[in-house]
């Protein structure tokens, strides 16, 4: 993939690439440190359908949301025979509002939770007293069967 870097004199720098569907997607890094997320129009690729200003924290949150699957893919490439999955805590899950230790995933399924993604922020290496909530994503590592059982445990308790 080819990320094009274009200087915008007096404003900052634009970084963009063309997606598989033909949209130009990019980021304008302003001199003052804030970012604009830009997406090109379908009928006129020269112009933008959206240009959304993001604060530094918002950009970090967005980067984490998009980067989480990347983290998993990275893990999968590194260790042969180990699988990773992202398991969601549904809002009505029995563990919504309880701690990670309560799930006893490690003992019951031999699956490790390496990180929790919540509202775009990654909490790496959560401790057993980490309180889970509906909408959290657990980044887990284990065997294929172990992961399936872990998904089951999180759904039904």
């Amino acid at each position: 993939m080819n990320v094009e870097v274009t200087p915008l004199p007096g404003i900052g720098t634009r970084h963009d690439f063309v997606s598989r569907t033909g949209r130009r997607i990019g980021v304008i890094a302003h001199r003052d440190g804030h970012f604009d997320l830009v997406v090109s129009r379908q009928d006129d690729p020269d112009s933008c359908v959206a240009s959304v200003p993001l604060t530094t924290e918002e950009s970090a949150a967005l980067a984490n949301l998009l980067g989480a699957p990347n983290l998993v893919a990275h893990l999968r490439d590194q260790v042969a025979g180990v699988s990773t999955r992202q398991l969601p805590i549904a809002p009505n899950s029995p563990y919504d509002g309880r701690t990670l230790g309560d799930t006893a995933l490690r003992t019951r399924t031999a699956v490790s939770v390496v990180a929790v993604v919540r509202a775009g922020t990654v909490h790496p290496s959560p401790k057993p007293d980490f309180a889970l909530g509906g909408g959290d994503l657990l980044v887990t590592v284990g065997t294929v069967t172990g992961l399936e059982r872990a998904a089951d445990v999180l759904d039904r308790g």
């Binding site: 404003i11 634009r14 963009d16 112009s47 933008c48 240009s51």
Partner: peptide, 17 residues
């Protein structure tokens, strides 16, 4: 007008420069 991401914008800016 949200045109900073447009492809013609660098052209406009370079004329201003």
């Amino acid at each position: 007008l949200g045109r900073l991401g447009n492809r013609e914008t660098p052209v406009v800016l370079s004329i201003l420069v």
